[in-house]
Amino acid sequence: SEFSSRSGYGEYVQQTLQPGMRVRMLDDYEEISAGDEGEFRQSNNGIPPVQVFWQSTGRTYWVHWHMLEILGP
């Protein structure tokens, strides 16, 4: 990996993601499973900070930056 740390990767995702971009989950996290795909909606200063609309659940759920792989527009 070109990223030395999880936080470095998270910063990359945070700087790159734009609303509407497709993402894939890298880790299991509460209701969301690794491999689930969705659409980035928004972020804020909460914890976790990233709101994604997940195809698997049909609704939005908040996750962490480093848990997401960017699939593209």
Rank of each mutant, 00 (worst) to 15 (best):
S1C: 08
S1G: 13
S1W: 06
E2V: 12
E2S: 14
E2A: 07
S4D: 07
S5N: 10
S5D: 14
R6Y: 11
S7K: 14
S7M: 15
S7I: 12
G8E: 15
Y9F: 02
Y9M: 10
G10P: 09
E11S: 10
E11M: 12
E11H: 07
Y12F: 10
Q14M: 12
Q14I: 09
Q15T: 11
Q15P: 08
Q15C: 08
T16G: 07
L17C: 02
L17A: 04
Q18L: 12
Q18R: 11
Q18C: 08
P19K: 02
P19C: 12
G20S: 07
G20F: 04
G20L: 01
M21G: 03
M21Q: 14
R22D: 07
R22N: 03
R22Q: 11
R24F: 03
M25T: 01
M25E: 07
L26W: 06
D28S: 06
E30D: 10
E30A: 08
E31M: 08
I32K: 10
I32S: 06
I32N: 06
G35A: 10
G35I: 04
D36K: 01
E37N: 02
E37T: 12
E37S: 02
E37I: 13
G38E: 00
G38A: 00
E39T: 12
F40Q: 04
F40H: 01
R41F: 07
Q42S: 13
Q42T: 11
N44E: 07
N45D: 08
G46N: 15
P48Q: 05
P48I: 09
P48V: 14
P48T: 12
P49A: 05
P49Q: 03
V50Q: 08
V50N: 06
Q51D: 03
Q51F: 05
V52L: 00
F53S: 06
W54C: 07
W54G: 03
Q55L: 12
Q55E: 13
S56R: 14
T57P: 03
R59A: 06
R59H: 14
R59M: 11
T60E: 14
T60S: 13
T60M: 13
Y61V: 14
Y61K: 15
W62A: 15
V63F: 02
V63I: 01
V63R: 03
V63D: 06
H64P: 12
H66K: 04
H66G: 05
M67L: 06
M67P: 01
L68P: 02
L68K: 06
L68A: 02
L68Q: 02
I70P: 14
L71V: 13
L71Y: 04
G72E: 06
G72K: 13
